[in-house]
Every structure is written in structure tokens, then in C-alpha cells.
């Protein structure tokens, strides 16, 4: 998925759109002929870049639908993986595994992400070096490759201090660490967008800082925070690499549980099916991609709708 969760909203797409719009506007306003050639060239370059990005996405979508459409049936959701009967095999255990892992991720990132964001925005004294250090680190962590989090999860969660083994909860914790910086950054942005006059108004009425945050700032920031959480979760759903390291296996026929036994998730299962030589598994993988795309697009659309809806309400 070409969704970059580093910023709320697909940042790459936004950048491309903004660049194209600015260029167009500049080209329309300019009257002279000299710079116009340059403008035209630059615009063409930008359109080319956008075209490449869209072409990649389109190719993926077309391939998935052409390959996977015949396999989109109920078996996909009710059957587990099978080597003997690939024509009726499905993603049941993988979908359930994803639900378990993502449920754990949500349970972890909501309190931790929002708490950290509230601390950094409302309480941290920015003149202190340690607060600036934390901020810098959160920003840097958002750019760390996911496989590094997988290694971290393997060393500290599966083995090491926590030692909970190769279970779904380990996957949840690892993915939570992975998306936490994104959620913190988005939640901070949402909290910062609440006008200071609202805080002043509440404090001037004798509310304590916590009452101000709890009763005024947070309710006003919730749509933005939710957007960040949804985008973070959308990224977590699509991750396969770190999960491979913390124990997601590719062939699980029993339904998973949080703290016992092996688990698998949708992207890991797709990875497995796609790697098999038989054509029938490739179709299965394509059908899985469609399921994931639908889930991801639905989540992203919901996040965007939520943001727009509440933005209108607040202004």
C-alpha cells in the first residue's frame, strides 16, 4: 500500500497534489514567455512523477483483481490454509490472527500514544533538554525501518526480559512499538491544533491543568487523534516483516489465541501463498490482496471522513 503513515493523510500523495497545484497556479498567473517554458517543463516532470506513482498502484490493483476475482468467495473467509485442497483453501486463521494482533495493537497504542502526546504538548517544559531529546527521538523513531522493530521484538519481547514466546501478543507489542511514533506525532498535532484561547478560558475559570486537558483539549482533539490512530493501525495491518521475526508462521490451521500457540496474519499468509509454485496459490494470494486493500482503503477513507467531518464542526 502506498500509504505513508509518517504524516496524517498519504503524505506523498498530498505533496504531489500540492506541488502540481502550485505549479498550475504559477503557470496561470505568469504572463511572460521566458519562464513559461520552464514552468511547462517542470509541470510535465511533476505529472510524470505522479503518473509513475499512480501507474504502480494501478498495476497492482489490476493484477490483483484479474487474478483474484474468481477466488473471492466464502471459502476465503471460512477455510484455513491447506496444501491438499488449495482450490478451497482460505484465510480464516490469518484473518483471525490479524484481528487478534491488531486488537492488541489498538489496546496498547491508544493509552500510550495519547498519554505521551498529552505529556509532550501540555506538560513538558520545552526549555528542558530531556523533553527536547524525547521529541527528537520520537520523530526519528517514526523513520526507523520496520524490520528493526522486528529484531527488537524478538530480543526483548519474545525472548529476553519479557520472554512471552512466539505468540500473537508479541506481534501486538512489536507492531505497537512500530506505529507508536506515528500515533504520538499525529495526536500531538491534533492537540496543538486546539486554540490556546480555549485553554486560557478554562484556566481562567479556575480549572486545573488536568481538568482543562481532560474536559476541553481532549474532546476538541479527539477527531485528529482518531485519525492518527486509524492511520497507525492501517500501517500495522499491512506489516509482515517484523511479524516474521516475532513468530508469525505461515501455516497455521487452528484459530489463534493471544498468549498461546503460533499465529499468522493476513499479509504473512499472502506472502506464503504468493511464494508457492502452483498457480492456484497465486490466485489465492491475489484474492487476499483484494481483501486487504478493501480493509485498508475503508480505514483510510474513514480516517479522512472523520477529519473532514470534525474540522467543519469545530470551525
Amino acid at each position: 500500500m502506498a500509504v505513508d503513515p509518517g504524516l496524517p493523510g498519504a503524505a506523498r500523495t498530498q505533496l504531489a497534489v500540492a506541488g502540481a497545484r502550485a505549479t498550475t497556479a504559477a503557470a496561470l498567473n505568469r504572463k511572460g514567455s521566458g519562464p513559461r517554458v520552464q514552468e511547462g517543463l517542470f509541470l510535465a516532470l511533476l505529472l510524470l512523477a505522479v503518473g509513475f506513482a499512480l501507474a504502480g498502484l494501478a498495476a497492482l490493483l489490476v493484477w490483483s483483481f484479474v487474478e483474484g476475482l474468481p477466488r473471492l468467495d466464502a471459502n476465503l473467509f471460512t477455510q484455513g490454509p491447506s496444501s491438499l485442497h488449495p482450490e478451497t483453501a482460505g484465510f480464516r486463521t490469518a484473518i483471525l490472527g490479524s484481528v487478534y494482533v491488531i486488537g492488541g495493537v489498538i489496546a496498547l497504542i491508544v493509552p500510550l500514544g495519547v498519554g505521551a502526546a498529552i505529556y509532550l504538548e501540555e506538560y513538558a517544559d520545552k526549555t528542558r533538554w530531556w523533553n527536547r531529546f524525547i521529541e527528537l527521538n520520537v520523530q526519528n523513531l517514526a523513520g526507523v525501518p520496520s524490520i528493526v522493530y522486528g529484531i527488537l521484538g524478538l530480543a526483548f519481547i519474545v525472548r529476553g526480559p519479557l520472554d512471552i514466546g512466539f505468540v500473537a501478543a508479541a506481534g501486538s507489542m512489536t507492531l505497537a512499538l512500530l506505529v507508536l511514533p506515528t500515533v504520538i506525532l499525529a495526536a500531538r498535532e491534533a492537540i496543538r491544533a486546539v486554540p490556546p484561547s480555549i485553554r486560557e478560558g478554562a484556566l481562567a475559570l479556575g480549572a486545573t491543568q488536568w481538568q482543562t486537558v481532560r474536559r476541553q483539549v481532549l474532546p476538541a482533539a479527539i477527531p485528529g487523534i482518531l485519525t492518527g490512530i486509524i492511520l497507525g493501525v492501517a500501517r500495522a495491518i499491512g506489516e509482515a516483516a517484523p511479524l516474521l521475526l516475532v513468530g508469525a508462521v505461515t501455516f497455521v490451521t487452528v484459530n489463534p489465541s493471544l498468549f498461546e500457540g503460533r499465529f499468522t496474519t493476513l499479509p504473512v499468509q499472502i506472502f506464503n501463498y504468493a511464494g508457492r509454485p502452483q498457480e492456484v496459490f497465486h490466485e489465492l494470494a491475489a484474492a487476499g490482496v483484494i481483501v486487504m486493500l478493501v480493509v485498508l482503503l475503508a480505514m483510510n477513507s474513514f480516517a479522512i471522513w472523520l477529519r473532514n467531518h470534525y474540522e467543519k464542526k469545530l470551525s
Binding site: 486554540p195 484561547s197 478554562a202 479556575g206 480549572a207 486545573t208 474532546p219 464542526k313
Partner: peptide, 21 residues
């Protein structure tokens, strides 16, 4: 304050905020 700064809530909740907290 200089600029009116009602809370983004109902009129009732705006007034009730102080007594509530």
C-alpha cells in the same frame, strides 16, 4: 478575553463548565 473564546460545546455546557470543575 479580547477575542470571545467560548468552548466548542453547547451554550449550557459553556456556562456549566466552571461550576462543574
Amino acid at each position: 478575553f479580547q477575542k470571545p473564546n467560548p468552548f466548542p460545546k453547547s451554550i449550557y455546557d459553556n456556562i456549566a463548565f466552571g461550576p462543574r470543575v
